[in-house]
Design a protein around this nucleic acid. Structure first.
Lengths: 235, 235, 235, 235
DNA sequence: CATGAATGAGGGTTCATTCAT
DNA sequence: CATGAATGAACCCTCATTCAT
């Protein structure tokens, strides 16, 4: 209608394209990180996986680290959404922690990209101020105050949980574990926190809310492409 | 004084020199891995640190990974010797595990190279068939059979301990922890294994056998050079 | 109020906008050339300095050289206007040459963009058929015919003057020269042309007509922005 | 004879090879700078001209500028040797300056590489502390003290001479000048310094010592290859 | 005409590896 | 075996240029 309309329109279209491109790159980056690890030179592979020109890549990310940071951030957001949606309604701290850990490990089990990515990223994801740590911290504190968990320094409880969690994902990714491995780990951790065995067994036996990754999320698209790859590799 | 004597002598001298050279390269590799991580290109730095020609390097190691494997193997041997010498005389499984973990974390605290190297290597050191796992496995089993530890799958107990141990080293290296952090972690792990709090507290309060790194060991030489570097950097 | 009026109007407005845009780009180019030299890649900086999109740039100039040529041409025009306005009323050839050189060097002294641009462009500005050479040629010839200047090939006299002039600007830009440096150079050149010392000293002591750069000229706007930049850099 | 002999030998051989390689690169650099100027990306061309791998280049020089500096330094040395050998025996300052300038311009005339290189390098060669400036400074001072040259600030005399010299080389390289152009320029400069016309004409008429570039010098080899190129281009 | 995302050629640099001495 | 010059593949990154909107 007015003179500015086309400008607005152009701006919007451009912004949408930018977001799509960025998403495509992040997707590809996740796949490549999962395959090759976060160490080596990843940019050429990401470019190839995204079927994009070199120049385009540098319109969005500048370095390997920059890419990794962006991806970690984005993933963290999606992860929190998913896990919180699984444990958000739960009142009891112990159940929250157990269910959260089970959800976390189940995700890494069913979504290979996720598992391999976390395995490769390892301690680089274990920054104390990551948002996921925040939730854990909160739940541990609540559990201690209610007397469910034995008193202990919360930071150390977090080291225990996060360390064991990463190790568990490593196992899941590199070996073939039993189906109830996530539940066993969760039970073990509950007991480490002071919950008695019977109660721990009861809490991990409760049904796990279904975790679904939205198909148009970063994670969903990455997993779809990743598992397609696997099928191609071994036809 | 026959003709073969000098040949033997020469051969022996050559073998000694080979070993010394190899040692120098491994030392340097450890320092470089501790500084730069195991990801990046490391060979030029190792060559520089060892003050050796490029060509010589390839007489001993062929790839980055080859170097890392050799180093991990060598270190593992020295580590086992040291930790076993610290806990070899102990009878009781719980005390063995606690003391082993304390020794492990203390090493990473006082020997910066060790800590940083382990932190960077991360899960790559956590292979289930590593010799150090063997000892741990043995002690855990003993503890369970004697009823000291609660029954649980030993593999999972190991995930718990190794995962938490790596996480703890990460904390030690990247943050400044309290002096009794190793003891707290050890106590926490004992409780996770089923030892009651009072007993755990008692076990970790026992004096820790002195851990000394032989000056002419790989670890000893690497640490000496590494700390000398630090002093040069901030004079 | 016919139908064509608005079309004309639109056309005119568009033409004005085109000129303004072109001016903005040339301004920015001058600043960037002054800062970075004419060698390196300049287009991204010009685009940034002009706050214009990449695409727009190519609606006005096609290559680095194209831009430089256009700028040199435009500047040459403004320069001639200014210097001629300073020496236009002068009759005597020696005074014309001396005053022209003084004006030229003074400009490069007070207007940093100009000085730095000329310094960077160097011999690329010294084409024998540049319009400024024309004036110089004319004045030298007149001076020789009137017997003020010693007979000598005019081309060589021009080499002498232009070469020395560029060298002098280089000094002015890269070192901090005395205030009367332009006058000294002018006197030196007069003597080189055959004027006696006393006369040379007299001619360069005469007051220099004020040189003012119109605020809305290419040069004026460039200098304004350039000096503003300098102030921002060292606040 | 002894054990160290082979090591010494190897060292010596390696050093010789290094020097030869460096020479080859500098030669090629000179040719490329002469052809393409010092502005643009030159390293790939130098590599091609030297028929050397990319990696090798970086074993000797790091950046464009590094290469240019090294070349300018090396050339300066050779130049000084040649020009001083031409004017070393001369007592009189005016003759020294005139002969030096003639030699300089003749060199640029007969050796195309030299001329084009200087033309492209332009003011970048005109640093006041270059060794060649030192000689000029010395001769100008001597000439003033002996009363041959009119008193004037020596720095300005140098600006005059160097500026005019660079301009003259620009003419020589870009246009086809008369054979006695170097002499005319020299005479002009002498007069500018205060020498009377008759004396100037006498001084520049004296025979010029023959300037020969040693065949195995940087300059000699570069010129040989450069002129060979020219013959190939226009067969 | 203005915009700015996309492109790909090409320059700059590092590094693992080889090989003559 | 030690040495270190030479190599070329591969990576990192920038820039001129195009083109759909």
């Amino acid at each position: 209608m007015s003179d500015v309309a086309p400008v607005d329109h152009r701006t919007r279209v451009a912004a949408v394209r930018r977001l799509r491109m960025r998403g495509r790159l992040l997707e590809s980056a996740m796949i490549v990180f999962a395959q090759k690890g976060i160490a080596s030179s990843v940019i050429p592979d990401v470019i190839a996986a995204a079927e994009v020109s070199q120049g385009s890549f540098y319109n969005y990310f500048r370095t390997n680290d920059d890419l990794f940071e962006a991806l970690a951030h984005e993933l963290s957001d999606e992860f929190i959404l998913m896990i919180e949606s699984a444990i958000g309604g739960i009142e009891e701290a112990a159940l929250k922690v157990a269910t959260g850990m089970r959800a976390y490990l189940r995700m890494a089990t069913s979504y290979k990209v996720v598992g391999q990515f976390i395995d490769h990223a390892g301690l680089r994801l274990a920054t104390r101020n990551s948002p996921i740590s925040g939730f854990l911290h909160r739940d541990l504190k609540a559990g201690q105050q209610s007397g469910t968990f034995r008193p202990m320094p919360i930071d150390m409880a977090m080291d225990l949980i996060i360390g064991t969690g990463l190790m568990a994902i490593h196992r899941i990714v590199t070996e073939r574990m039993l189906d109830d491995y996530p539940e066993c780990i969760a039970a073990l951790l509950l007991q480490a926190l002071g919950v008695c065995e019977a109660e721990a067994d009861r809490l991990i036996a409760l049904p796990l809310p279904k975790l679904t990754v939205p198909e148009d999320s970063l994670l969903g698209r990455a997993e779809a492409r990743f598992s397609a790859l696997g099928r191609k590799d071994t036809p």
